[in-house]
Design a protein around this nucleic acid. Structure first.
Lengths: 210, 210
DNA sequence: ACCTTTCGCTACGGGTCGTAGCGTAATACC
DNA sequence: GGTATTACGCTACGACCCGTAGCGAAAGGT
């Protein structure tokens, strides 16, 4: 047993508080400067650490911002509100609240853009941000099936595709509303969105989108 | 009448061919270098113009890339395929095809990210990219109402909100699927998406999402 | 005490930025 | 044709940021 230090290593241990300080400084810099004007030297000064310390812990700006933004999504939960529509509305409102924060707005899209040319970064985003969100979709779907609101999927492959589709529709709509249309995903909008998602554009069992 | 030159100005006219060359060079650089490593000096060399010419025509990298990417969306059309679902599938497939191109993938998200801190850039994106797409939603909706598939909206304010909602759902889902989930929005996916959008998650008049 | 790792600091070459200045080219007006 | 006006290509520049190397000191284990 040599696991008193994080990985059984010898030598001076890393200052754990510095990690938190650096990530907080990164978010602060994102708010004040935005992605493009954010420099690692500036973050180091804000965090009260040397620039070299930053480079010892993160490969570069991209990975640092991913980790800084990922922490924002820790607060996502899925309380049981009794129905599929209510569950969707609840989680979408939480998601919208996160995306309304400037550090998320400027950082998230930028790293996604960078990830289009960086497979490792894409995987980092998937593991630390996307996967956590997708688990909420899975949980909500299971609940709805237990309630009888959705038909249970026998084919697990089909089920996975359905979850991916729903996830892209929910997250995509909120992100597009917030960042591209640049208008708030408030309760009214979320309500209309949920109605369309659950009942569709054509007036079926529920009222139409008007 | 002094409007033979574009705006009635005197002096040497601008080389119109240079504009096209610069935008094409920008797209090429986006493919080869991506957003972050794209430099205006490099674009100038590719286009065969001086770097100063670039700065005389565009305020900076952001605006240049917006214009370069906007041209990609010129090809969007909305052929009448007979039904709302078919119309949606057609235009979504076109949209997906554009987003599959590397110059769109790396450029679009990056400028949207920059636009979160730049009101003028946001307006430029809205005018040259978003508005054109939204017009297709308007046209498709009018067709569906003419066919009787959608109830006509009496309140123009409600109608505008519905169009905005649909637009965010369609564009958002495709963008998220393509850029965040990083998987192709192929025919199978588009078909499933359209079914959910038109008929909803719950098995109403149509079949469920499975 | 000794070893190992981290940390802060300084310094560096390399690259990009955005602008200024200059001479020249291309057009409109007279 | 001559002149005014604008666009163009080119060069050069200070400022900034990058990412790394090298050093001495600090903080833990053994």
């Amino acid at each position: 047993m040599q696991s008193r230090t994080p990985a059984g290593r010898t030598g001076r241990p890393r200052n754990a508080a510095a990690d938190a300080a650096i990530l907080a400084a990164t978010r602060q810099a994102l708010v004040e400067l935005g992605w493009s004007k954010l420099t690692l030297g500036d973050v180091a000064v804000r965090a009260g650490v040397a620039k070299t310390t930053l480079y010892r812990r993160w490969p570069g700006k991209n990975e640092l911002v991913v980790d800084a933004v990922a922490e924002l999504f820790d607060e996502l939960t899925l309380p049981d509100r009794g129905s599929l529509a209510a569950d969707i509305e609840g989680v979408v409102l939480q998601f919208a609240a996160i995306l309304a924060r400037p550090e998320a707005r400027s950082g998230l899209m930028a790293v996604v853009a960078e990830a289009t040319r960086d497979e490792a970064l894409r995987e980092r985003i998937r593991a630390s941000i996307v996967e956590r969100q997708k688990r909420l979709v899975l949980a909500g779907r299971a609940r709805a099936q237990a309630r009888g609101e959705l038909a249970p999927e026998s084919d697990p492959d089909e089920a996975a595709r359905a979850v991916d589709l729903i996830f892209d529709m929910v997250a995509g709509a909120v992100v597009h509303r917030t960042l591209v249309s640049a208008e708030p995903a408030d309760e009214k909008w979320v309500h209309g969105f949920t109605r369309v998602l659950v009942f569709g554009l054509t007036p079926g069992p529920g009222p139409g989108p008007g």
